[in-house]
Structure formats: C-alpha cells, structure tokens
C-alpha cells in the first residue's frame, strides 16, 4: 500500500457516489495525483483493487487522458496555449519567453526540478485573455514578459502542495484594461513561422 489513508478513504467515498465503481476511476486517479503528484503503476494497481477492477482497466483510462502524469513532473506545472486565438495575440512569443527564462524546451523539467512546462495546442478556454497559460491549474491571462517573470518568481516561492491547490493567487487585470501584447512593436500575428 502506497496511498495515504485519506486518499484511500476518498476513493471509497467516490466509489459509492456512482451507480458503477468503474465511474470512480477518473476521480480516484485525480485523488492519487493530488497526493503523489503523478500516477505510479503501483498506485494505479491500488486504485484497481479498491474499486474491484483489473489494473489494466485503470491503466487504460490513465493513458487516454493527457492530464494524468505517467512520470513525475517538477514541483510546478505550466501549460501555455498556442492554439489559434492565443497565437493571434502572441502565444509563440510567450512560449519563447518562458523557454528562455526556464532554460529548457517544452515538455521538460528545469534542472532544479522546480518547473515542468509545455506548450499545448489544446485551447484552454482562456482565449479572451490571450496570450495565457495555466500554472498549477490556475488561469494566468493577458501575459506580458514582465507578468510572466513576476508569476514565475511568485510560484517558485510557493510549496508544491498538490492537495492544497489552489494556492493564493494574484487576480488577473479586468478584460477591459487589456495590457499591450508581449511584443510592444510590430504585429504579433499567427504568421510566426517565417
């Protein structure tokens, strides 16, 4: 047994909320990830045992969904949207700035284990505040290089308590006071490849 008693209790509780225990797989995996930060195979086996299912049934679910970590990530996780609406307002520049600040390419973890970051083509539902990113699941919108630097500094000072997401946050500026996009001069548009 590798899961804490409270995680096991949460899984038992979840199981009873659904007409079929299989439906409890996803919430159980979230509970595990919130405790351990990722999904080790032994923990998935333990979920299967608690729900009375085969380990393969739990693994099949874990591997389908992109938000379950199959490897341990850094202390904090950053997701930068580069889909169309964000790209129109400078998402590529945002991603480049983060890459330069953290010193590692998308999909990797900083040498000190502090940040794992990736750019994603999934629209995160923050197009109204583009360019945007999510840090430990929180929306950070209307990004500029200065805002990004401030956010990274703030987050690095926070502990990585997966259970206690969400940590205290700085509110986004209201949409009506849209700050200028990352590149002050020149048109950041979707035509970034040239």
């Amino acid at each position: 047994m590798m899961l804490a008693a409270r995680t096991r209790a949460e899984i038992e509780h979840t199981r009873r909320r659904y007409p079929h225990p299989r439906s409890a797989i996803m919430p159980s995996l979230w509970a595990v990830q919130h405790e351990l930060g990722w999904l080790p195979p032994e923990a998935m086996a333990e979920v299967a045992e608690l729900l009375g299912l085969a380990p393969s049934e739990v693994q099949a679910v874990a591997t389908f969904y992109s938000m379950y970590f199959k490897r341990p990530p850094g202390r904090h996780h950053i997701l930068v949207c580069v889909n169309a609406a964000c790209a129109l307002r400078g998402a590529d520049e945002t991603a480049a700035h983060i890459e330069q600040r953290l010193g590692c390419p998308s999909g990797t973890t900083t040498a000190d284990g502090m940040f794992t970051w990736e750019s994603t083509i999934e629209c995160l539902g923050g197009c109204g505040g583009a360019p945007m990113m999510q840090v430990d699941h929180h929306f950070e919108e209307h990004l500029t290089p200065e805002r990004i630097d401030a956010i990274l500094a703030r987050v690095a000072a926070q502990p990585a308590d997966h259970r206690d997401w969400p940590p205290a946050r700085v509110p986004n500026p209201p949409a009506s006071t849209t700050p200028p996009p990352p590149t002050a001069e020149g048109p950041p548009s979707a035509g970034a490849a040239g």
Binding site: V82, N83, A84, A85, A87, L88, I121, E122, C123, C127, P187, S189, A190, G191, A192, A193
Partner: peptide, 21 residues
C-alpha cells in the same frame, strides 16, 4: 465563438494550428 483576424494574419498558419488541434 467569434475569432477576428486582422490584415497581418496568415490563414495558412491559423489553419495549421487548427488542424494540429
């Protein structure tokens, strides 16, 4: 949704991102 694009936008680039999605 309503996504508006100005004259500097490359429609091939936007298409590429949506196709990637």
């Amino acid at each position: 949704a309503m996504m508006f694009m100005d004259e500097t936008t490359c429609l091939v680039n936007v298409s590429m991102r949506l196709v990637d999605f």
